[in-house]
Simulated assay, not measured.
Amino acid sequence: MTRRLLPVLLAAALLGGCGVPVDDEPRRVQPPPGGFPTPAGTATAEPDGRVDEPLCFVRGDGLAVATRRFDGLPDVDAHLQHLLAGPDGAERDRGLATALPGTVAVAGASLTGAVATVDVRQAGEETGRNDEVLAFGQIVCTLTQRPDVDSVAFRRDGQPLEVPRADGNVSALPLTAADYRPLLGR
């Protein structure tokens, strides 16, 4: 019995000595070189103060993100105005377009807490466009990529506006990028 117990005790003693040594006092730890990664889908500041401004445009029948560089993150309304201006030449060369002009007439945007509210006017009847899901998806996906925006609400004449989600349902509640996830990256 002692012969069988001896190897077990010897193994336990050897394994008990393994591990990280304990210091008597706390010691300083050096951070790894380089910056720490930031979550995907957020505007980020670089050491030179410039930031990435994500904008969601249309590619085919889905949404794709383009990133532009600015000296600082604009306010919510200015960010929305950059989206409304549409893709630039290089973005158009990459196959990006917009569904916004003629589909959704945006009057402006404001931020209350982490909810961006977009004021929408009645679009003209002569537009001939029917891709409202993509248009509202562009706005929601663009604004919710900001670090200060969690969701986007829409209103017309001061009243909550029901807008289409990617699943075909309409909602007057604040929307998130998850409501348009099936359209992203197509």
Rank of each mutant, 00 (worst) to 15 (best):
L84K: 07
T112M: 04
L84T: 06
P87M: 06
L111Q: 04
G108L: 12
D93L: 09
A116E: 03
G89H: 06
H79T: 11
R28E: 14
D93M: 11
R28N: 09
A64I: 00
G113Y: 14
A66W: 01
L111T: 04
P54I: 02
G34D: 11
D77H: 08
D93N: 12
A109E: 00
A116S: 08
V20T: 15
A99C: 11
F70G: 05
A45R: 14
L96K: 01
A105N: 09
G34F: 12
L55N: 00
F57K: 02
V58L: 05
V65Y: 13
P54L: 01
V115M: 06
Q30T: 13
D75C: 03
D61Q: 14
E53K: 07
R94N: 13
R50M: 11
G34S: 10
C18K: 06
R94Y: 04
D61R: 13
D88K: 12
D23T: 13
Q30A: 14
E46R: 13
G41T: 02
R50G: 08
G19F: 09
G19D: 08
V106K: 00
T38A: 15
D77C: 09
G35A: 15
P87N: 07
C18E: 09
D24L: 09
R50T: 15
P101C: 04
P101H: 07
R27T: 10
L73G: 00
G102Q: 13
C18F: 10
P37N: 09
L111E: 03
H82T: 13
F57E: 00
P26R: 06
F36Q: 11
G60C: 06
D23W: 08
L63C: 05
A40D: 13
L100D: 01
A105K: 09
V106Q: 01
V104P: 00
G86H: 12
R94M: 08
V29N: 04
T38F: 15
D93I: 02
G62N: 04
V115H: 04
L73C: 10
A109M: 05
G60D: 14
P54G: 02
P54K: 03
T112C: 06
R27A: 14
T42Q: 14
L100R: 03
E25K: 09
P32Q: 14
L55A: 03
P47L: 14
A85W: 06
A114T: 15
P26A: 11
R50I: 01
G108M: 10
L80F: 05
R92N: 04
G60V: 03
A116I: 12
A107R: 15
C56L: 14
P37C: 08
L84Q: 13
A85H: 08
P37E: 06
D119I: 02
L100H: 01
E25I: 06
P87W: 00
D75T: 07
A105F: 07
L80N: 00
R50L: 08
A109V: 01
A90N: 10
G41R: 02
V29I: 11
G86A: 13
P21T: 08
G49Y: 03
D48Y: 06
D75A: 08
R59T: 07
L84A: 10
V29M: 10
V51E: 06
T44W: 13
V58Y: 00
A105I: 06
A85Q: 08
P74W: 06
G113Q: 08
R50C: 05
A109T: 02
R28W: 11
D75M: 05
A85I: 04
D48E: 06
S110D: 14
R94E: 11
G89C: 05
G41V: 02
A99P: 00
G89T: 13
T103I: 09
Q81P: 03
